[in-house]
Write a protein that binds this DNA or RNA. Structure first.
Lengths: 109, 109
DNA sequence: AACTTATGACACCTTCTGGTGTCATATTAA
DNA sequence: TTAATATGACACCAGAAGGTGTCATAAGTT
């Protein structure tokens, strides 16, 4: 599956608002660590740690380009989140359909 | 919107596997703290803390029933997660990635 | 009344998080 | 060559997370 060998999973990765913002930035375009850091009022070290965390979760990949390290979004692990949510959507559907049936039968009477 | 006044948000709440399991349990049926605790090899105190955390995030509500405190799932805050994911699904759509196909085939099953 | 059950409220402990700063090194620019 | 840039690798720190246990109390049971 997607979560083998990683110290951190997707659920932990997206728990932090800074990391969520980084993912949004990387969705737009690939960026260097310095460029990402400029979007926050945080030290480069802090941003780097978040990038390591995201990399651990498989949500980003890094690639050296000269003296820069460019980061890129890797959205695949979000599927796990999607599937997890799907379970509860199913739960909602059941509750809603029960309500819908009740309303419909009420209208039919 | 949904996240005003809460110390913890949905993203933090679902970051822990124990809390995710609790949500799954409560999706099936409303349960007392003791009943939930029996499903884990954890102390009641630990489980209670997780329930407080989930309550803080608005994902569960408690209700006294005699000497028991029964907990119930409150799935509405998960909508925030759904919307967040939707952003990346849109991104995937634009990129026409293979991931989109995977998700769609999963939904069709 | 005496006992058991279900919780709430604490105090305490260890590890992880999220942040800082400094120093060394590789790469590009002057 | 020298200077500036971009990053990696540490050490360090305060506070939160996730766990434990104990004690007090409210609510059923016998």
């Amino acid at each position: 599956m997607a979560s083998s060998g990683f110290r951190h999973d997707v659920f932990e990765a997206i728990a932090d608002p800074t990391r969520r913002k980084i993912l949004h930035l990387l969705a737009e375009r690939e960026m260097s660590i310095a460029a990402i850091t400029e979007c926050f009022s945080l030290s480069r070290t802090a941003v780097n740690k978040h990038l390591q965390f995201l990399s651990d979760a498989g949500l980003v990949i890094s690639q050296k380009a000269g003296r820069e390290t460019r980061y890129q979004l890797q959205p695949e692990p979000l599927v796990e989140l999607k599937l997890w949510l799907a379970f509860f959507e199913h739960y909602w559907d059941e509750k809603l359909s029960a309500l819908k049936k009740f309303i419909e039968s009420d209208q039919n009477d």
